[in-house]
């Protein structure tokens, strides 16, 4: 097991494996996304209350899920990087941050586009919206810290540590914002009380969720490949690789 993990985590091996996997994952992701979009935008019936505008959930909900999922992945990779000093984990933690921030931003934008016809305003200081916004700030913090530190390895570890601190804080921030809301003024925006979603809407939603996960994996593998190359630019295997591509 350990031998396998070490072999997997060795940069040249990862570089090759990621290069083979990424296109496959990308194509599967595209296929699922096409199916999910077709199911969501064409096949699924309009909602009896919200009409057509509910269809944004097929983008909004998966990206909100991804925004939290990626943060946890980032913190996990950060912990692995700090404890076992695995270079690859640093790369994964650092390269996840911009993808996660994009998904968070997408969730916020699609949410406010949906909010305009539904709630009559682009933005309300609702608990969920606020904690999603704070999550975006936390992502920016990780990215800013990583960009500010010169030494790449120290930057990776510092960003990983900050991600861990953030992941401890996210539940606290989320509940504090939720209680702030209820303590202050009582709910002005009633959440959809967990409507039992119809199968014709659930299937495309799940398809989209899986395809978003694969999209993340694809982009992460590509970004991690270039991250590994950049960090290992002095190593022998990168020179060999370079020599081979030049001779081709």
């Amino acid at each position: 097991m350990w031998a396998f993990l070490h072999r997997f985590a060795s940069p040249p091996h990862f570089y090759r494996l990621a290069g083979t996997l990424a296109p496959w994952l990308g194509w599967i992701c595209l296929g699922l996304m096409a199916g999910g979009l077709y199911g969501g935008l064409v096949v699924a019936p309009p909602d009896y209350q919200q009409g057509e505008s509910y269809r944004i959930i097929f983008v909004h909900v998966p990206s909100a899920w991804m925004s939290m999922f990626i943060y946890v992945v980032m913190a996990g990779a950060g912990a692995i990087a700090l404890i076992w000093r695995i270079k690859l984990a640093e790369v994964v933690a650092v390269e996840s941050a911009p993808i996660g921030a994009s998904f968070t931003f997408l969730a916020l934008v699609t949410g406010s586009l949906w909010g305009k016809p539904m709630w009559g305003t682009y933005w309300v200081w609702d608990a969920r919206l606020t904690s999603e916004l704070v999550l975006l700030f936390l992502y920016f913090g990780v990215m800013g810290l990583h960009a500010a530190i010169e030494d790449r390895r120290a930057a990776g570890r510092a960003a990983g540590l900050l991600a861990i601190v953030g992941v401890v804080n996210i539940p606290i921030i989320h509940y504090s914002v939720e209680w702030w809301h209820t303590l202050h003024q009582g709910p002005t925006v009633t959440k959809l009380s967990a409507p039992s979603i119809h199968v014709s809407m659930l299937v495309p939603l799940l398809l989209m969720a899986v395809s978003f996960k694969l999209f993340y994996l694809t982009v992460l593998l590509q970004r991690a490949r270039s991250g590994v190359l950049e960090r290992e630019r002095g190593a022998g295997w990168v020179r060999e690789l370079l020599a081979r591509t030049e001779s081709d």
Binding site: V134, F137, L138, G144, N169, I173
Partner: peptide, 10 residues
């Protein structure tokens, strides 16, 4: 400030 202020929210 970017790192610390979000953590001060609670």
């Amino acid at each position: 400030s970017l790192l610390v202020l979000p953590l001060y929210i609670p």
